[in-house]
């Protein structure tokens, strides 16, 4: 078989493997209950609050990842260890720790409550949990994206008289955009699908993952599957669009 044939076959096999779980949507479980599966509130909660979380993650994570490039080696190593710790944290454990750290028994939680900011079962708690769950993933991807930009190009731009801000906006950022797009996609998926931590910190307002769990417990698969389908159809375009935008002015 030719090299192209082997590649096509390998990609097809991997693609089928990744898509196979969706076959579950076609397994007979009884008549789908669309009437109870609308859950527009859960969908709006998930998409809206995840959007807010993603904006925060990108706004905070991008300059952080960029600054890591020129950070002293020990500082960078230490920070990367902290990021890895946040990424490796099991979601349920993250939720428990967040609930304790921002709960009324902690100084921070008590202070926030005094300011009228509810630290559990609120939109704020939902977004904060998502930020904690996805920031580490974004930082890992964004750091790799910035590391991949050749420093010689940035130096050339500086030698042509471009001040650091111009170098960043006109050279570094465009050259890192594919990696940043991938990192943002990953952060979106991670935040949107977060279940374990959200269950503990923000059971209310119900986002889609919690709604799926509740519906599964209370009403069974015929109600869950329509909601799952809506969830997939609404959530998938965002990472896809992020990738497309990143590629839109590609040079390769």
């Amino acid at each position: 078989m030719s090299k192209d044939g082997v590649r096509a076959l390998s990609l097809a096999a991997a693609g089928l493997f990744l898509l196979y779980p969706l076959w579950g949507l076609f397994v007979p479980v009884g008549r789908w209950d669309w009437a109870h599966a609308g859950a527009p509130g859960a969908l709006a909660t998930s998409l809206g609050l995840t959007g807010v979380a993603l904006v925060i993650v990108v706004a905070v994570g991008t300059p952080l990842a960029f600054s890591l490039r020129t950070a002293p080696r020990p500082l960078r190593t230490l920070f990367e260890a902290i990021v890895l710790l946040s990424v490796l944290m099991p979601p349920l454990a993250l939720g428990l720790l967040l609930a304790l750290a921002f709960g009324p028994r902690s100084a921070v939680g008590a202070a926030l409550l005094r300011l009228g900011i509810p630290t559990s079962n609120s939109s704020t708690a939902f977004v904060v949990t998502q930020v904690y769950a996805s920031l580490g993933y974004y930082l890992l991807g964004a750091t790799a994206a910035f590391d991949a930009v050749p420093q010689a190009l940035e130096q050339s731009a500086a030698l042509l008289g471009a001040p650091p801000a111009q170098v960043f906006w006109h050279i570094t950022l465009p050259l890192a955009r594919l990696g940043l797009g991938a990192a943002a996609s990953l952060a979106w998926v991670r935040a949107l699908g977060e279940f374990g931590a959200i269950m503990v910190t923000a059971y209310y307002p119900h986002g889609i993952p919690v709604e799926l769990w509740v519906d599964l417990q209370d009403q069974g698969l015929p109600t869950v599957l329509p909601l799952l389908l809506i969830f997939l159809l609404c959530a998938l375009p965002v990472p896809w669009l992020l990738r497309l935008v990143a590629r839109s002015r590609g040079y390769a």
Binding site: A152, L153, Q155, S156, A158, L159, L160, G161, P164, I171
Partner: peptide
């Protein structure tokens, strides 16, 4: 670097 009014051309490929 950006405040040095010079032109620098090396053997390395540095076109953007």
């Amino acid at each position: 670097l950006h405040r040095r009014a010079l032109g620098y051309l090396s053997q390395h490929e540095t076109l953007f």
